[in-house]
Amino acid sequence: MALSESNPQLTEDAIVEGLRQTGTIRIKAEESLFKTFDYFIKEGIRNHSLTREESFDAYSDTVLSAIDKINDGTFEGRSSLKTWIYRIFQNKCVDLLRKKSTNKQSIHQTQEISGLLYMLSDNARTIVQKMMENTDMELLMKRLQQLGEQCKKMLLAWADGLPDREIATLLEYKTADVVKTSRLRCMEKLRQQYKDHKS
C-alpha cells in the first residue's frame, strides 16, 4: 500500500518507510505507528496491573525507542513490527514494575547519561560528566526557549538524529552545509546567553 496522508492506518512496511522520511510524512508515520498498536496499553493495564498513565508512558517510550531504532538501522525487519514492538513494550513494563517495587522513581533526572559521553575516554568522560552535573538545566531550557523558533526547531531536529541534509529539506535551507553553520551559530548564541546569565 502506498503512503497516503489521508490513510491514517498504514501497513507495517509503509510505516517503516515513512519513519525514514522527514516532515509531515514522518509525523504521519509516527502517529500511525502509535495508533496501530495502542491496544498494547490496555494489555499493560490488564497483564501487568499498571495504571492507565503508567501503561501509556511505557507504550509511548516503546514507540519512541522503536522510531530511533528504525532510523539507526537496528531494526532489520527480521521479525514483524508487531512482534518486535511488543517485545520492547513488555520490557518497558517490567522495568517500570521493577522501579516501582524498589521505590527508585525520582522526580526528574538532572541529565540522562548520554551515548555521546561514552564515546570519550575514561579520563575525559569523568571530567566532562562532572561538569555536566553542574549545568543549570533550568537556565539552559529558558535560554533555549528564547532562542527563536527556527533555532529551536533546528536543534530539536538535530537532537532527534536527523542528518543536516534532511534538516535542510525540512526547514527549507539551501544545503546541508548552510544547516550546519546555522546550527552551530544557534548553539554558540545559546552558549553566550547561558554564560551571560549564569555569571
Binding site: E112, T135, L144, L156
Partner: peptide, 24 residues
C-alpha cells in the same frame, strides 16, 4: 564539550516531550 552534550540532551528531552504530548 560538556555544553555541547548538555544541549543535545536538553533538545532531545524537549523533542521527546513534544512527541509524547502528541501521542497523548
Amino acid at each position: 564539550v560538556s555544553f555541547y552534550i548538555s544541549t543535545r540532551n536538553l533538545a532531545k528531552q524537549q523533542s521527546v516531550a513534544e512527541k509524547k504530548a502528541r501521542f497523548r
